[in-house]
Design a protein around this nucleic acid. Structure first.
Lengths: 242, 242
DNA sequence: TTTGTTCGGTGCGCTAACGCACATAGCGCG
DNA sequence: CGCGCTATGTGCGTTAGCGCACCGAACAAA
């Protein structure tokens, strides 16, 4: 599939934030790839060969325990990059990365990434700031898991997901959402019914449509705003300089 | 209080892992400081003036919500450093840092840290690997909050804390532990009673003594080992080189 | 020794979420 | 058009953890 202008590298915010010169160096090695739903980009402890800059796909970082229970730790969409462990020096992580919402992205061989990262310039500072934002998301997930209801967490998850795609409709089963949030499928059914009754969303067999985004924002716990504001603070275009 | 050899900078694993030359440069600016129980080292969104390398103290990174509920996100002891946001480029985080177990540590003005960090050498790679380990801890906290019982979480918390201090006895009220784990004090009372009945720990008014560490390790959920192994993998002395 | 304060233990009733079982309904495919 | 698969809705009983109230016990300071 060709790169069209509706799926240019610049749809990824990190790539878009790079100065032209640096982007040009990376672009030689960037490869447009399909990221179909369910694809496992990185198993627990496995070494990535590429880092991925999603343009329309969303990747879920999650952890599956010995007994099969699982939970999402954070998500990566067009605001970020999958593979922070590469430049953080650990190469791998104990978590899994699977495509949660199919789409496209750009991948970059880790050598090309590290060559640029090791210049210790704009790219390095940008990626480190992104990583800090990712840490905020993980921290807030921990807090939200502890204290908030399934319904609130569903609102948070929906809003964070919507922020990463242009559409108002997601192709996503309740089962899948449940496994993301680490709760029962029935719990999602009930929470989603509530939101539907309130007129905030509409549900139909594998598709969820947001009807009233402001209403969702009124229901969501504070965790959503904390994460969103921190992403804005750390990754607004301006401060690529230190 | 003077620096004695029972509280040298090398008690902090990160400082100890530095080559002599780099350590010498930093040592000019290192300051031995008391870190008393309860001290707030960094409020939410506040800018640190120093980074802290605990030698005997333990710092808790936690988050307090609008309604007062709170949860610990991660802990920082002699294996790490408080203030990753400085070198990650964000300067602040939404979380709080308070001293959870009083003791001592070394602080370093952020300018001295950044001068060395910006050499993009051993210190930078070490701090980034530590930050990745911290991310693992945060991720595992999120998972553990979701799926494991208070008793298992108490085991995890005890073991992680013990790994950071040489003693088998901690000075710590149940109230404090409860606020760390983000649960009720009564929940800790009950979990601790169970562990005491099993002969694994002994409790007395503000002091908790571990009697049978192996027994605790048999009770704990997998989260503990995941975190511990990841710290070992990322921060064993050898690979300061990239 | 006394007294006051903080810490820990215990017993309610309540609720959110779980595990399970099963009914219904959309939707693709032949 | 009908079949069958898969997604969703629903109704149990069960349980972990919560919120509250209160007691007793340990410790510190006078």
């Amino acid at each position: 599939m060709q790169c069209s202008n509706i799926d240019a590298p610049q749809k990824n915010h990190l790539l878009a934030a790079l100065p032209a010169e640096i982007f040009a160096r990376l672009a030689l090695h960037l490869e447009h790839v399909a990221m179909p739903l369910g694809e496992a980009l990185c198993a627990s402890g496995a070494q990535l060969r590429y880092v991925y800059f999603p343009s329309s796909a969303i990747v879920s970082l999650h952890y599956v325990m010995a007994d099969g229970a699982s939970a999402e730790i954070a998500g990566v969409g067009n605001e970020g990059v999958l593979g922070t462990a590469i430049f953080m020096g650990g190469n791998t992580t104990p978590s899994l990365a699977t495509v949660q919402l199919g789409g496209y992205g750009y991948r970059l061989p880790i050598k090309a990434l590290m060559d640029e990262f090791n210049r210790a310039g704009v790219l390095m500072r940008l990626l480190l700031r992104y990583t800090q934002a990712l840490m905020t998301q993980m921290a807030q997930t921990a807090v939200c898991n502890r204290h908030h209801s399934i319904e609130q967490q569903l609102c948070r998850w929906l809003l964070l997901t919507l922020d990463r795609v242009p559409a108002l409709e997601l192709t996503m089963t309740q089962e899948l959402i449940a496994s993301m949030l680490g709760v029962r499928r029935e719990g999602i059914t009930q929470a989603a019914s509530n939101l539907q009754r309130m007129g905030l969303i509409r549900y139909r067999r594998g598709h969820i449509t947001v009807l009233n985004r402001a209403g969702l924002e009124a229901q969501v716990c504070e965790c959503y705003l904390v994460v969103k504001k921190e992403f804005q603070r750390l990754l607004s275009d301006a401060p690529a300089a230190q």
